[in-house]
């Protein structure tokens, strides 16, 4: 245990995701030894993010205005929506530069054991967005784990009567890896999702 404010800082850092007591201590001492200007910049960034950033009223992505940049961009195709779990997934899809549509952030995945059901996600908001008939295609890009798959299954069933084109991201082998090292679950998925080579 350290005294007063140092321990307070360690405690606060230790509450961050993925930061254990040892890392918290290391970060705290790093901050203590840093230049005051750097520390002030960090504190400012922390304050700014809480003051300025909110969630886009349309898609639920983080945004500095009522609507996020993607929703405001007229070049983005309004007919296609990519459904993701978290704002960080929007960033991941944007990095691919493959997708020119818009997003919908659910705010998590269905996990009954954690007490998260469909009503706890932004599914009603998604259905509202589909009401005017502009959207014709949905890409379900929830995580390739059980909860993400179950959430996609739930959405696919809910969307079926609406006659939209609904696709799910392919899951399978990591690009750049060797087949022999793939586990059988992943390899099995890759077989299910195989595509026709049209040459």
């Amino acid at each position: 245990m350290y005294e007063g404010v140092v321990q307070d800082l360690i405690d606060e850092l230790g509450r961050l995701p993925g930061v254990g007591p040892k890392s918290a201590q290391r970060i705290a001492f790093h901050i203590l030894q840093s230049d005051p200007v750097d520390v002030r910049r960090l504190a400012h960034a922390l304050n700014e993010v809480k003051e300025k950033v909110r969630f886009c009223v349309v898609c639920g992505n983080v945004s500095e205005s009522e609507r996020c940049r993607v929703c405001l961009d007229p070049r983005r195709d309004p007919a296609v929506i990519c459904v993701v779990e978290e704002p960080k997934d929007v960033v991941a899809v944007e990095r691919t530069r493959e997708f020119r549509g818009r997003y919908h952030v659910l705010g998590g995945a269905i996990s009954p054991i954690e007490g998260v059901g469909p009503d706890d996600l932004r599914i009603r908001e998604l259905m509202t967005r589909l009401a005017d008939g502009v959207v014709t295609e949905l890409i379900l890009a929830t995580d390739p784990n059980l909860e993400g798959e179950a959430t996609a299954t739930y959405l696919a069933r809910l969307l079926k009567p609406m006659g939209l084109r609904v696709t799910r991201l392919a899951s399978g082998l990591p690009v750049g890896g060797d087949l022999e090292y793939a586990d059988e679950v992943t390899l099995g998925r890759a077989f299910e999702g195989r595509r026709l080579l049209d040459v």
């Binding site: 784990n145 990591p174 586990d183 679950v185 992943t186």
Partner: peptide
């Protein structure tokens, strides 16, 4: 992603 356990422990 390169874990030897892969998706076996879901």
């Amino acid at each position: 992603t390169k874990s030897k356990f892969g998706a076996r422990l879901e």
